[in-house]
Write a protein that binds this DNA or RNA. Structure first.
Length: 457
DNA sequence: GGGGCAGG
């Protein structure tokens, strides 16, 4: 009944805001993992991005391939991806570490290319899972179900390119998008075979409404989390409030670290400490990140009493709600780059209608649409797209300001910037040394960086 | 929240 879409991006680097996908691979299956379709597509790099040499090296993409004229540009690539999502909707979208990496990467691609639905994999009945989180839960709960490879540091490694082979997958070309998708399906299936009842619970986590409903009915729940390089650990506790500013952010009171009666009559100040102190007696968690939340099969009497006490303390929920929303209010919008404003508000309805029009029409029409957006982010991103893909429609002055933008990106006056600069390129190439075809790579980057400089004058 | 996960 439900289809899965296992997918993976290969990208120009690790930053969702300042890098971009270069390849998308996906395998659509039915609920029994019978394959229905597979896709594997690539795209050109956008004019303002320098691909990280390390990224190209691990993904085995030659620099020249990123500017191959026969490939779609990112704007067209984003359109193709939206069509693919719509074609299979509703489905469950999943991959390996997709919640923290590929999903933000995809949203940025949609945002920066003026797609109306930047949250497409979470809308219209689509849901999300993350196989890496499922692997963590398996490690914590039923470790015998899988084999656990040891990494270079002597600790269990959860990297896909180690885990899949250790469990019997012939991972011939790891870090190729499609090969990694197959490895992910393999791991997903292994978890299903090895630990059927846990697997069934973990599948429920794809529905944020299910998770939120269970939490908010004060059931004793558990979740497996991993911090840093530590082994994943299961935490048991109870929902204790929702952030005032973000309905997806909740407080989760740990059974082992709290006394229920004390918690129920804690002051506002004490609750803030429980949330912000160390160890976190109340954890800040999200219901929309496909966490491994699940109910506890046989809760003890004291767990049930704990939940009852929390349920009966409206004050606790109010304080938690307040403290959670205060935690993330310190960002200064003024100094953010346009890419970093992706979550600075939803589009108005008229803007959204214009975005649908923008996608369908010609570049000439797009120029006038860009000027009528309410949202300044859309005007800025729209101008950028026209400069990238229809520069002939710009005045000489506008073309020059684009060149200036490129020069500032690649040779910034600030020392630390969150994107790949010319200096980063030269030092990375030096570090990669004989692992790459040095002359060809240097030539590529020199040409690309110089082109921005020449244009500048 | 810190330590260096895991993703390219």
């Amino acid at each position: 009944m439900q289809n899965f879409i296992f997918y993976d991006f290969e990208t120009s680097g690790l930053s969702s805001a300042f890098d971009q996908p270069l390849q998308f691979a996906a395998i659509v299956t039915d609920e029994n993992l019978v394959e229905l379709e597979r896709v594997n597509i690539r795209c050109q790099i956008a004019p303002h991005i320098l691909p990280s040499p390390y990224a190209l090296h691990v993904t085995n993409i030659h620099p020249e391939q990123t500017v191959e004229p026969s490939l779609p540009n990112p704007f067209e690539f984003a359109q193709t991806l939206q069509e693919f999502i719509a074609k299979w909707s509703p489905a469950c979208w999943l991959g390996y570490n997709t919640i923290a990496f590929d999903e933000p990467m995809m949203r940025q691609m949609f945002y920066q290319n003026l797609q109306p639905e930047i949250f497409a994999t979470q809308m219209n009945g689509n849901t999300r899972l993350d196989v890496m989180k499922m692997v963590w839960a398996t490690h914590a709960e039923t470790p015998d179900a899988l084999s656990w490879p040891i990494g270079d540091n002597g600790k269990t490694s959860f990297k896909l390119d180690r885990l899949a082979p250790a469990n019997g997958f012939a991972h011939a070309n790891a870090h190729d998008a499609l090969a990694d998708v197959e490895a992910t399906i393999f791991m997903f299936h292994k978890i299903q075979l090895g630990t059927a009842s846990l697997f069934a619970k973990l599948l429920r986590a794809q529905e944020k409404t299910i998770i939120a409903t269970e939490l908010k009915s004060y059931l004793p729940m558990e979740i497996t989390l991993r911090f840093g390089g530590n082994p994943p650990r299961t935490y048991q506790g109870c929902y204790c409030g929702t952030s005032k500013s973000n309905s997806n952010t909740i407080g989760f009171a740990d059974f082992d670290l709290n006394d229920a009666a004390e918690l129920a009559r804690a002051s506002e100040h004490e609750v803030t400490d429980l949330i912000e102190g160390s160890p976190k007696k109340i954890r800040t968690l999200a219901v929309n990140k496909s966490e491994t939340f699940r109910w506890i099969d046989q809760p003890t009497v004291s767990m049930l009493e704990f939940c009852e006490a929390v349920k009966n303390s409206a004050d606790l929920r109010t304080y938690v709600s307040q403290a959670l929303s205060e935690r993330y209010e310190e960002r200064d919008e003024a100094n953010l780059e346009i890419e970093e404003k992706i979550y600075s508000g939803f589009y108005s309805i008229p803007d959204k209608d214009l975005l649908f029009e923008f996608q369908k029409t010609s570049w000439v029409e797009r120029v006038s649409i860009v000027n009528s957006f309410d949202d300044v982010r859309l005007r800025q991103l729209g101008r950028r797209l026209i400069a990238f893909y229809a520069p002939e429609l710009l005045s000489r002055e506008q073309q020059n300001s684009l060149k200036e933008f490129l020069a500032n990106r690649w040779s910034p006056s600030l020392e630390k910037v969150p994107w790949t600069t010319a200096n980063d390129i030269w030092s990375s190439l030096g570090e990669l040394g004989t692992k790459i075809e040095m002359e060809a790579w240097v030539e590529f980057y020199e040409t690309r960086i110089k082109s921005a400089e020449i244009l500048k004058t």
